[in-house]
């Protein structure tokens, strides 16, 4: 099947997951917030719910990978991996959201912060890729 069809189907599942988390657990499904507030201790009040979410988030793709495999094609450049991880960690916590919190949950709610954050990280990402691939010729 075409990539975009899989993309759309996967997207519906992501949105469905966010809908369950909102309508039942009463919470916004933001990956960076769920784990970030465990790491900085601000979310210890409901740690069990966060760990349960993370168990599903890590466990189900593991089971799927046994059936259909999985390959991330991540760069093998350690410097790039560490730098990217740090930037994603710091950036999502400063902005209080990532692709799921600001992107999926924010835009669908027409939240000004969600829409602005998404436009900015898409623009920053696009410029970074253009610079690295087209101008400098790395990655």
């Amino acid at each position: 099947m075409l990539d975009w069809v899989w993309g759309f189907v996967g997207g519906l599942m992501i949105g469905g997951a966010a809908a369950v988390y909102l309508l039942f657990n009463g919470r916004i499904m933001g990956a960076s917030g769920i784990i970030g507030e465990l790491v900085d201790r601000t979310g210890w009040g409901n740690w069990a719910e966060r760990l349960a979410f993370l168990a599903g988030l890590i466990g189900v793709p593991y089971l799927l990978s046994l059936l259909i495999g999985g390959e991330t094609h991540l760069t093998s450049n350690w410097l790039v991996i560490v730098l990217a991880g740090l930037l994603v960690g710091i950036g999502t916590r400063l902005a209080n959201g990532c692709t799921s919190g600001h992107g999926v949950c924010g835009i669908s709610r027409l939240s000004l912060r969600g829409i602005v954050a998404t436009l900015i990280y898409l623009l920053a990402g696009g410029l970074t890729i253009a610079l690295l691939r087209q101008v400098i010729g790395v990655i």
């Binding site: 994603v88 990532c98 920053a124």
Partner: peptide
């Protein structure tokens, strides 16, 4: 929000992974 989103976008592009 603005500084964080810029940093996140850069990191996302570098490795292709978000949280």
């Amino acid at each position: 929000l603005i500084a964080g989103s810029i940093l996140f976008g850069m990191g996302w592009a570098l490795a292709g992974l978000c949280p």
